[in-house]
Design a protein around this nucleic acid. Structure first.
Length: 170
DNA sequence: GACAGATGAAGGA
DNA sequence: TCCTTCATCTGTC
């Protein structure tokens, strides 16, 4: 979606595998779960100044990712590039970032928190459109009655991330 | 404008 | 309980 300057990719090696972080010149734009493919530079080359800035962001991303994957709060994050996203999606993702580790909320609670209690299905849609999983903790959102609901990157990852934080589901 | 979706609630078996 | 149906809201095409 963001093709203004192209995105640059960097790998983040963790105990859970090698994540891929993608950056635009505006900030962290995407995180990909570990796959078999190797990380590589993508898009057009960026100016050296921008690249240096991204290196700094990447250090923050790497540290935050490792903190979350060890069951702690993400802490300081680089700027997030949510350009091209709707206000509704951004408000949902802001709300997700306010959920503490080991805590979960339902889609209905998120909908209520953003002031639109009936928009529960839309919240699910916004979660599915979340380009920055883990750091924007969509895995902490469960369906009503603590059912696991869904997860764009696979329910196995959702269970795994919750288990890391000490949340176990039936 | 129609349709689909990571939901929730209500009603019936 | 479990299943089905319907209401509701947003994003995408």
């Amino acid at each position: 979606m963001n093709t203004k300057t192209g995105l640059v990719e960097f790998p983040v090696t963790t105990d859970e595998g090698k994540f891929i972080a993608r950056y635009s010149e505006y900030g962290l734009a995407e995180i990909k779960f570990p796959k078999t493919e190797e990380a590589r530079f993508a898009g057009r080359p960026l100016p050296p100044g921008v690249l240096a800035k991204i290196h700094g962001w990447h250090r923050l991303t790497e540290a935050a990712l490792k903190r979350v994957l060890s069951g702690r709060a993400a802490g300081k994050l680089p700027p997030l590039d949510w350009s091209g996203k709707t206000e509704f999606q951004k408000s949902v993702w802001r709300e997700l970032r306010m959920i503490s580790p080991r805590k979960t909320k339902s889609y209905g609670e998120i909908a209520e928190a953003i002031g639109n209690r009936k928009a529960v299905r839309a919240v699910g849609g916004a979660c599915g459109a979340n380009p920055i999983p883990v750091l924007v903790p969509c895995h902490r959102v469960l369906a009503a009655n603590k059912r696991i609901g869904g997860f764009s990157s696979g329910l196995d990852w959702k269970r795994r991330l919750l288990a890391i934080e000490g949340v176990f589901l039936d």
